[in-house]
Design a protein around this nucleic acid. Structure first.
Length: 418
RNA sequence: GGAGAGAUGGGUGAGUGGUUUAAACCAGCUGAUUGCUAAUCAGCCGUACGGAGUAAAUCCGUACCGGGGGUUCGAAUCCCCCUCUCUCCGCCA
C-alpha cells in the first residue's frame, strides 16, 4: 500500500509512475475519498468531544442527568453514532482503493512495457557445447525413471508431478542443499504452514487483486500458499520491531500451489509450470535505508546456489511494466535451459520497500520513532526448475546425468544418475 | 467432535456501568544521591489518526483493554457473533 498522504501531495509523480506500471490512477476519486475521510474524522471528533465533556461533568458532579439534559445529549449521541458509521464507510472505501494500487517502481528501474525492456545485468557460467543430440528434461526423466507425469495426472490431474526413486532423492537433496547453504549466510530456517489466512495474503499483496491465482480452502477464508513469502513476511505482521534486530533474514522450504489461471497453453510439457512445486524462499525485513543494499545481497545469495551447482545463468533487472504489483524493484535470475536454447526464470528477487509493511503493519523503532519496515524476498531457488536445469545441463551422450559435485554429499555421493 | 475456563500496556496482574486520565509490581529510560558495582529516591515510560506549529520540539483532541456488532447520556465492565489460548473427555499421525 502506498502512503495516502504521499499520493495526495505528489499527484503528477504518482500518476506517471503508476502509468509506467500500467495502472491508470483515478486521482479525482482518490482525492475525493481522501478529503471525505478527513472531514468525517473531524466531524466525528467534534461530536465525541462534546459528548465526552458532558459525561465528564455528570461523573464529577456524581449525579444522574436530568430528563432535559438527557433529551439534549441523546441527540448528540445519535449524531455521533451516525458520524462514526459514515467515517467507517469512507475509510473502507478509501482502503479498498488503496489496496488495489500497485507499488511505485524505484528510480533505478528501467522504464518499459514488457520483458523486451528488461536489462541484463550479468551473465555467469559457460554454456556447454554438446556434440550429441541433446534431450529435454521430460525425456531424460522418463528414460531414467525419475518422475512420472502420467501417474500424477491419473491420481490428481494435469500440471501435477510425482517424483520417483533417484528423482525423489534428487529433489530432496536439492531442498536440503539449498537450506544448508542459506543457513551458512545466517538466514534463520523456518518450516511454515502451507495454508495462510486472508489477512496474510492481503499483507503480501496477493489479495484482493489476485485471488484467481490461488487455491482457496473450501468453507474457509484460507488459501494454499503460492510461495513461502506469504507466511514468512507475515511472521512479524502487526509488530513494532526494535531496530537492533534488523535485518531479519528467513529461509524456508515450502510446497507452492498456483492455479495458473490464464496460462492454459503455456509450458504444458514437463516440470516447468506445475500447480504444485517445491521452492526455497528467502525473506528479509530491513529498515528503510538499507533495503536496496540488502536486495543486492539477497540476489547474490540466490545466485550462489547456481554457482555452486555449476549452472549457467544470467541476472536481469525487470523494467517498470514487468515489475510485479507489490515490487519496487525486481531482479530475475534465469538459468540456462539447453533444450529450449534460452534462459528461464528460476528466481525473482524483489524489494517491496514499505508497500507490504504498510499492508501487514510491520514497523520498527529507532530512537523512539516508529517507521514502516522494508520487506524483500527472493527464491533461493525454485527446486523443480533447478531439477530441470541439472538434468538438461549435466546430461551425457549415453543418456545418464552427472550429479554436480556440490550436491553429491546430499545424494549418497552418487556421481552419475543412470 | 463434546464440556469447561480464559484473552487487560514490553512482562506479571488488579479492575462487574461514571475522577479508569487503566491500579500495583517487574523490566526499560532520564535525573538526583553515594568511592565503583549496587542500593535508594524522583520523574518518564504505548499506538494510530485529526488539529495547531515554517519545521523540529511540543501542545490540544479522538480512538484503542483479542476482533466485530449491540444496549446506554456513559462500556475494559452488560448482551450477541467470531477468532485464538488453556484444561478435561472422545478420536487420531
Amino acid at each position: 500500500m502506498l502512503d495516502p498522504n504521499f499520493i495526495f501531495n505528489n499527484k503528477e509523480l504518482v500518476k506517471e509512475k503508476l502509468s509506467n506500471k500500467k495502472y491508470i490512477l483515478d486521482y479525482d476519486k482518490f482525492s475525493k475519498l481522501y478529503l471525505l475521510r478527513k472531514k468525517a474524522i473531524q466531524n466525528l471528533e467534534e461530536l465525541k468531544g462534546k459528548l465526552n465533556q458532558f459525561n465528564k461533568k455528570i461523573t464529577q458532579e456524581k449525579r444522574k442527568p436530568s430528563s432535559v439534559e438527557l433529551e439534549e445529549i441523546k441527540g448528540f449521541s445519535n449524531q455521533s453514532k451516525e458520524a462514526e458509521k459514515n467515517k467507517k464507510k469512507v475509510e473502507v472505501d478509501l482502503n479498498q482503493m488503496l489496496l488495489e494500487i500497485p507499488n511505485l517502481h524505484d528510480d533505478s528501474v528501467p522504464k518499459g512495457e514488457n520483458e523486451l525492456s528488461n536489462i541484463e545485468v550479468r551473465k555467469i557460467g559457460t554454456i556447454k557445447k554438446y556434440d550429441f543430440k541433446i534431450l529435454d528434461h521430460t525425456t531424460i526423466g522418463k528414460n531414467l525413471n525419475l518422475f512420472d507425469l502420467e501417474v500424477a495426472a491419473k491420481i490428481t490431474g494435469t500440471r501435477f508431478n510425482l517424483y520417483r526413486g533417484l528423482g525423489a532423492k534428487l529433489e530432496r537433496a536439492l531442498i536440503n542443499f539449498m537450506l544448508d547453504e542459506h543457513g551458512k549466510e545466517d538466514y534463520i530456517e523456518i518450516f511454515p504452514p502451507f495454508i495462510c489466512n486472508k489477512e496474510s495474503f492481503i499483507g503480501t499483496g496477493n489479495l484482493p487483486k489476485f485471488e484467481e491465482d490461488l487455491f482457496k480452502i473450501s468453507g474457509t477464508d484460507n488459501y494454499l500458499i503460492p510461495t513461502a513469502e506469504v507466511p514468512l513476511t507475515n511472521i512479524h505482521s502487526n509488530e513494532i520491531l526494535d531496530s537492533s534486530v534488523l535485518p531479519i533474514k528467513y529461509v524456508a522450504y515450502s510446497a507452492c500451489f498456483r492455479s495458473e489461471a490464464g496460462s492454459y497453453g503455456k509450458d504444458v510439457k514437463g516440470l516447468i509450470r506445475q500447480h504444485q512445486f517445491n521452492k526455497i524462499e528467502l525473506v528479509k525485513i530491513t529498515d528503510e535505508f538499507s533495503s536496496f543494499e540488502e536486495l543486492e545481497k539477497l540476489t547474490s545469495n540466490a545466485c550462489s546456489i547456481l554457482d555452486k551447482l555449476e549452472l549457467p545463468y544470467r541476472v536481469v533487472t525487470l523494467c517498470s511494466g514487468d515489475t510485479s504489483f507489490s515490487s519496487a524493484k525486481t531482479y530475475d535470475i534465469e538459468v540456462w535451459i539447453p533444450s529450449e536454447n534460452k534462459y528461464r526464470e528460476i528466481s525473482s528477487c524483489s524489494n517491496f520497500c514499505s508497500f507490504q509493511a504498510r499492508r501487514a503493519n510491520i514497523k520498527y523503532k529507532v530512537d523512539n520513532k516508529t517507521n514502516f519496515a522494508h520487506t524483500l524476498n527472493g527464491s533461493g531457488l525454485a527446486v523443480g526448475r533447478t531439477f530441470v536445469a541439472i538434468l538438461e545441463n549435466f546430461q551425457n551422450p549415453d543418456g545418464t546425468v552427472t550429479v554436480p559435485k556440490a550436491l553429491r554429499p546430499y545424494l549418497n555421493n552418487i556421481e552419475i544418475i543412470s
